[in-house]
Amino acid sequence: MIEIRDGKIGYKKVLIQIENIQLQSGSIHALIGANGAGKSTLLSSLTGEIELLDGEVLIAQKNLKTISDRVRSRLIAFVESSFSGVEFLALEDYVLLGRSPYTDTFGRNTREDKRIANEAISLFGLDKYRNTYTSKLSDGERQLAAIARAIAQDTPIILLDEPTAFLDYGNRKRLIAELKKIASEKTKCILFSTHDIELCIEEQIPVLLIDQETQQLIQSNELMSKTDILLKGFNLIS
């Protein structure tokens, strides 16, 4: 689904070098690397917000650069690391905004849009908050709501920037398990950046690791051990 070929990623200065990475639909990967290693930059390169310094990103075999905004919005959803909620914006309306790529010129939601949005809300057990203002939800609920919006966007690819950063331990674990389930059940290609190495190992999530020394992005077919991750990603010997 996502392929990066001979990619050099960064703003002006190269942060990550990628020979060839392929992420299939139905798979989930955790993007792990030290602060400043370029996790967010890589995600921004995959959403098309910044261009590669070299090489290319292919989305469903098409060069990302040649994909129009409208088509791209039906291929890639993105979840920011925090959503602080908005007064008077009810959860259902928030999730419905994820349907924007499919609505008419005036943004009117059809019955089908509502069905899809509510299905995404149910997926996370948020039904009882449908009419609650997003500003009144807890951090954990809001993060789930943000992912529900990405699901409602109905894209084959979902990228998440540190979705667990502002959550407590229980919510982190639940969220990662939920993402894994969604990837396989809905055959989505999910990539999320995170510092929760232990949780990813526990949940058996494959890792994309930014090697601190060589700036290479490492994708291993087997699950990486914690020792490997700490050594290559963080220069730590455990």
């Binding site: 905004d69 920011e80 924007s100 790529p101």
Partner: peptide, 16 residues
């Protein structure tokens, strides 16, 4: 309407 999500999310939803 989408702008309530912030500028970044608005762009990712395909708006110029």
């Amino acid at each position: 309407n989408a702008l309530v999500l912030g500028e970044r999310s608005t762009e990712i939803l395909g708006f110029n």
